[in-house]
Amino acid sequence: MKNLVFATVLAFVGVTSYANVDSPELEIDVATVIVAQDFEEISVSDLPTAVTSAVAENYPTAKIDKAYKNETDQYKLELSLEDGTSGTVYADAEGNWIEM
């Protein structure tokens, strides 16, 4: 009977020791671009050359209808295409597109 109690205690201790394994911490090395929504309208002629060049390269039939800028030099551009469709794109001062 003592052997049965002793075996039960050993089994219980063995099972609980596996339950106390520390889980590893997650390490996240992902760059995140945050776009602030406090845009103020600016003149299209005030856009940096890099931004207008990016629009011309990626949207050759697009016309920039309105341009907006926020405090972190990010630009919101309202574009219209020749086929009548329109949309909004976001770019930084270097002409890199920002996904929303």
Rank of each mutant, 00 (worst) to 15 (best):
I34C: 07
L26N: 05
A7T: 15
A91C: 10
T88F: 01
V89L: 09
K63A: 00
G84W: 14
A11H: 12
A56H: 02
A36I: 10
F12E: 05
K63G: 06
K69G: 10
K66T: 08
Y75I: 00
S17I: 10
L10I: 14
V33K: 01
K2Y: 04
L26R: 09
E41K: 14
D92T: 06
V89K: 13
T32K: 09
M1R: 02
Q37H: 14
E40P: 02
K63L: 08
T8F: 11
E82V: 09
A36M: 06
F39D: 11
E78K: 13
S53V: 10
D29K: 06
Q37W: 06
V30S: 12
G87Q: 08
G87P: 01
T32Y: 05
A54W: 02
Y90S: 14
D29W: 10
M1V: 07
I34Y: 01
A7L: 10
E25H: 03
A50L: 13
E27D: 03
A11N: 04
A67W: 02
Y18N: 05
E41N: 13
D22H: 13
F6T: 13
G87H: 08
K69H: 11
P60D: 04
V5Q: 15
T49F: 08
A54E: 03
I64Y: 00
S53A: 07
F39Q: 05
N20Q: 15
E94Q: 10
V9S: 11
A54M: 04
V30Q: 11
E71Y: 05
E27A: 05
D22K: 10
V33F: 04
A67S: 03
N58C: 04
E57S: 07
G95F: 01
S53N: 01
S23W: 09
A11V: 09
L47M: 05
S17M: 06
Q74Y: 08
T32S: 02
L81T: 06
Y75M: 13
T52E: 13
F6E: 14
D29I: 05
E41R: 11
V9E: 08
A7H: 09
I34D: 12
S86W: 08
V33W: 08
D65F: 01
D73V: 09
L47T: 08
S53F: 07
D83F: 09
T32N: 09
G84E: 15
S23A: 04
Y75R: 00
A56E: 03
S43P: 05
D29C: 02
D65E: 07
T61V: 05
G87L: 01
E41Y: 05
N58E: 01
N70D: 06
T16H: 15
T32I: 04
I34A: 11
L47W: 13
T61F: 12
E27C: 09
V15C: 14
T52K: 12
S80Y: 15
D73Q: 12
T61R: 01
S43F: 00
F12V: 14
I42S: 02
